[in-house]
Design a protein around this nucleic acid. Structure first.
Lengths: 189, 189, 189, 189
DNA sequence: GATGAATGAGAATTCATTCAT
DNA sequence: CATGAATGAATTCTCATTCAT
């Protein structure tokens, strides 16, 4: 009965999606350490279901952010093609990254954490965002527009850290300070 | 018996000092979330003693860092007096702040956290570090050396965030990115 | 469509066989408490299938060992016919029983357990092994070769218990101690 | 205030004793795998108290049986001195051991288990019961009363296994089968 | 008949916090 | 004032069992 199997798999995918949405919401409210039980309740599923789909917390965290990380990475070449100059592209990309990070409250902290269980997430960032950012930096450098000693990975980590917001330091502050950081990356003429 | 009262108070002060030292060491090793029991063991006291001196964890965290925060704040006017120009003083002060933050593993995260229990620490920062930093910024601005829109509080938060280190982003990276941030604060000629 | 019914039944039998084989293997590796899911995976079937064929774990345990218990029971009359004297037959049969038990890691413990769910297994033993053993004991008694007060059931339970092995007490030890037990069963001249 | 400290320690000892008694009772009813929570409830304490006194289950199991194991071991030299011949002493000691084991339902199984967490218990047995039993066996051997190839450790394991009782195999059966085993240990004249 | 996704009860373990001494 | 035993809520994780397809 292929229809039944397909229906069941479709249902499982829907459940998986509900879990991811619930986890994303929980991460915004409580950070990536949100109790599994809370996520299960938000998703309207049992805890066992979470464990079935995502055996470890790191699996869940990674899955939650993977799509958006990929989207963010894909933005880089597009901006590079569309922008007047590479540095403008870099600035635009950083803005998008900041929006991503401050919306997903807690991801900045997750990226900054040295929790070994989050190694997946680091790897994901290394594999997708670092190359994307490096492309932009290389273009800026080729343009003679980049101060020396700016590497993609620390820059991303720095932007990530700058996006750890709180009651007295909000998205606008994060954007401003990232802009300042990027200004510091620009070669002084 | 005034002497016994004095002796008792002196003993209490010594106990308090031992707890602060133990907590500082525990925070370096385990972050500001170190279990109270571990701190008590390091200090050679019972957990009840810690609760007597510091009813909440935030009280303890604040007390641990207060002295060093004060020292850091006091550095600002000295550097301003000694340095060739205000921006050099600002850079030197930032360096000292970075050293302070990365040595006290976890303080950066504590400053960046919006845990309501850490409001004391934020207040402390507001009361001492922000004015100190503002003095430096004002001097830079008076010198025409500061880009517009740089406020003391967000700058401190930004530096604090940049000092959240990890296995792939260490003290040297933090120093570098703070230097880049400061470069971005400088008015372009 | 009688053929399809037959085919379905044949398929069901094959499934049942696969489950039994998988369960036997799992019991060797993990004991009779092996997770149902593990058994299902080994068998390449869903857990529901196991529950359909064997509603309780005891049903599965019993089914797994039934054939081998029957084989063991059938050995008794054969040995009695072939051996020089009844006591030799008894010793040979005990050896075979020991081999059976220690190979089926966990069965000894299952026989010794008073888990009410394993009542089936006890009943099975009572129905097949006890008569087989009793035949041998009767023959020994008729030969004047058996100490008084040796009953089949406790003897089997004793042998079963002696076959509960571990890291410091292995199959060889079990064989030795069963031999000692049988020596104690022999009438002293 | 030495009195206060002494009182608190005395209270802690009483708690510890209550936990041991509750654990012993729980082990009789449910085996050594009894849930910690059940033991805590029987003892009228919180689960944390159990963990404070006995960090691992093995610690608890060991503590529960240590005293009785010591008592049992101490019985050996006494019986040897009082009995007419060494083999009588051995038989008497085995009787006492059987009483101990069947009363402490579950210890036989614990001794037979290869759970690595119960290594302590095995070590305890090795350190105290094996030497005690070996003394008796040596005396029997010196008397020319012992069949060859009987070692203390496997013999103890065997007796332990024979004492795993159940609904159809009770203390009387265990005693009988141990007696048969010992008869098998005696040198045939 | 077969499947396996979903459920949720149950067990272990940790630690902040209280309070009698 | 200091102590640390006791408490129990909170959290993670596992697995037997059910049931819609």
């Amino acid at each position: 009965m292929p229809e039944s199997v397909g229906a069941r798999q479709a249902q499982a995918q829907r459940t998986r999606g509900a879990v991811l949405a619930a986890a994303a919401a929980a991460f915004v409210d409580q950070g990536v350490q949100a109790p599994i039980r809370d996520i299960a309740e938000r998703a309207g599923v049992g805890v066992g279901t979470i464990y079935r789909h995502f055996p470890t917390r790191a699996d869940l965290v990674t899955a939650v952010y993977r799509h958006q990380i990929d989207t963010c990475a894909a933005l880089a070449p597009r901006l590079l093609a569309e922008s007047a100059d590479p540095f403008t592209a870099l600035a635009g990309w950083a803005d998008a990254f900041v929006d991503f990070l401050v919306t997903k409250h807690g991801l900045g902290a997750a990226l900054g954490s040295d929790d070994p269980g989050l190694a997946n997430l680091h790897a994901l960032m290394l594999d997708t965002l670092v190359p994307a950012c490096a492309t932009l930096l290389d273009a800026c450098a080729a343009d003679g527009d980049l101060a020396p000693g700016i590497a993609a990975y620390p820059l991303l980590r720095a932007i990530g850290n700058l996006c750890i917001t709180g009651p007295d330091y909000d998205r606008a502050d994060a954007r401003r300070m990232v802009a300042v950081l990027l200004a510091g990356c620009r070669r002084t003429a």
